[in-house]
């Protein structure tokens, strides 16, 4: 599975995942909570653009992220315009876009494996209330392993339908997919236990 990570050597890439999450988290909070005027919003835009430049993503990288959320932004903007005057609508819509772009910087500059490690470390203190961080980490790894297998099932079913001239619909597609998937789950569960998974 291709992650959203874009390799690089920028200061953001080199920063440890935990610290980066904290830093960008604070920035995201600041942008979302601060009561904006058009002026302060301009500053926020500058900060986010600077962030993308520092992260080596360039304006094109920024634009790619904007394009990924354009539907959401248009939807939000239109509804804002229906209910509030345009300056307020612009401020809110831009603020929402900035917050998303800002948080996306984490994913663009952090390898999935580093994020998974950070998640496991972040959950470890919760062991006191019974959360098993190691178990969750195993589940995340296991799911990453299994996604291509299930995707393969989906492709096989579509191919088989084509071969038989059946038009795939929710029922003819999802029921076989569910059966394949749950059967596979039983086999996988057995293998997990056989390979020494501890309770």
């Amino acid at each position: 599975m291709i992650s959203l990570y874009r390799p690089g050597t920028s200061p953001l890439h080199r920063m440890p995942a935990g610290r980066k999450l904290l830093l960008i988290g604070v920035l995201v909070l600041a942008i979302s909570i601060y009561p904006h005027t058009l002026w302060t919003l301009g500053i926020a835009v500058a900060v986010v653009v600077a962030g993308y430049l520092i992260a080596g993503q360039g304006i094109s990288g920024l634009w790619r992220q904007v394009r990924m959320v354009w539907m959401l932004i248009v939807f939000t903007g239109v509804f804002q315009l229906i209910f509030v005057p345009w300056p307020a609508a612009t401020i809110t819509t831009t603020r929402i876009l900035l917050v998303i772009l800002c948080a996306a910087l984490i994913s663009l500059t952090t390898q999935t494996s580093a994020m998974l490690d950070a998640i496991e470390r972040g959950l470890t203190p919760l062991s006191r209330i019974g959360v098993r961080a190691d178990r969750i980490a195993l589940l995340l790894a296991l799911t990453i392993t299994v996604i291509p297998v299930i995707l393969g099932f989906a492709r096989d079913i579509i191919t088989a339908h084509r071969a038989r001239g059946v038009r795939p619909g929710p029922r003819t597609f999802v029921v076989p997919l569910l059966v394949h998937t749950m059967r596979f789950a039983d086999e996988l569960g057995e293998a997990l236990v056989a390979r020494g998974l501890r309770s």
Binding site: L142, I144, V149, F184, L188, E190, A191, A194, R195, G196
Partner: peptide, 19 residues
């Protein structure tokens, strides 16, 4: 017993746990 006895299943896909 699982520490001394390993198991190989028919379906190779279902035995792989890590990415």
């Amino acid at each position: 017993v699982r520490r001394i006895a390993g198991f190989v299943f028919a379906n190779p896909d279902a035995q792989i746990i890590m990415p």
